[in-house]
Nucleic acid binder design. Structure first.
Length: 227
DNA sequence: TCATTAAGTATGC
DNA sequence: GCATACTTAATGA
């Protein structure tokens, strides 16, 4: 594994090759398959993580066993950064979406990186800030929109993060089930299934098992708007 | 307007 | 061939 994989990572962007090498040498690399849980909500926050490849779903599990997906992590982003917000335990569960490759470090190194790595603190503040904005947007959607609009919003959020243009559509590049979309939109898999079937008839989306692509993004955006 | 129940079909390891 | 993903309709809050 070469230190150059870290040059694209925002929080290490200002480090020279030697420093990157040192950071890398102190990390542990792991690989996980779809659905594997990396840490659970409430676990002691012993390590922090950097996603190199794949995607991570951050979710909370309700007392009745229901799950709510709060956000997704992209390659190059940190996760499990309890230290950054002054916590001793993880506030949410992190699970792999598809195959993932990630690095991790013992949590005590967080303070050391923040002190010794130029740009690390500033970049992680940015990242945390961006997530706050994202969560705020999602929260507003939950509070103000009807289910159909929320489901449309959830799909658009997936497109924003994982959309890849194909010949005549925008495919979501990670596996997503109806249940996943329901957990992102505060709905049920049945309602999501019904909505997707309807939109498929209207030529707005096209879906197979665990795979969704959007044929007509503007019309989906229109559905996502209230009114 | 939407969740729940229930009963089915399709798909993939 | 079995578990998982998905569809559809009916019911009722």
């Amino acid at each position: 594994m070469d230190a150059s994989v870290l040059t694209m990572v925002p929080c290490f962007r200002q480090l020279g090759h030697g420093q990157l090498q040192a950071v890398l040498e102190r990390s542990t690399m792991r690989r996980e398959g779809d659905g594997s849980v990396i840490f659970h909500e409430g676990d002691d926050a012993e390590r922090f993580y950097l996603l190199l490849d794949g995607a991570i779903r951050v979710l909370r599990i309700m007392p009745d066993g229901e799950q709510a997906v709060t956000l997704h992590i992209l390659p190059g982003e940190l996760f499990g950064i309890a230290s950054a917000i002054g916590r001793k335990t993880y506030p949410a569960t992190a699970a792999a979406v598809g195959d993932c490759v990630y690095l991790s470090w013992p949590m005590p190194l967080w303070a050391e990186f923040a002190e010794t790595c130029p740009g690390f603190a500033v970049e992680t503040f940015h990242e945390v800030g961006n997530r706050l904005v994202e969560l705020n947007t999602t929260l507003t959607q939950f509070a103000t929109k009807l289910v159909e609009q929320r489901v449309a919003c959830a799909l658009l959020r997936l497109v924003e993060k994982f959309g890849s243009k194909t010949h005549n559509a925008t495919a979501i590049s990670i596996p997503v089930t109806r249940k996943d979309i329901a957990e992102m939109s505060g709905s049920t898999l049945h309602t999501v299934s019904r909505l997707l079937s309807g939109w498929e008839k209207d030529g707005i989306v096209s879906s197979r098992r665990k795979h969704v692509e959007i044929i007509d993004v503007p019309r989906l955006s229109a559905l996502a708007k209230s009114g």
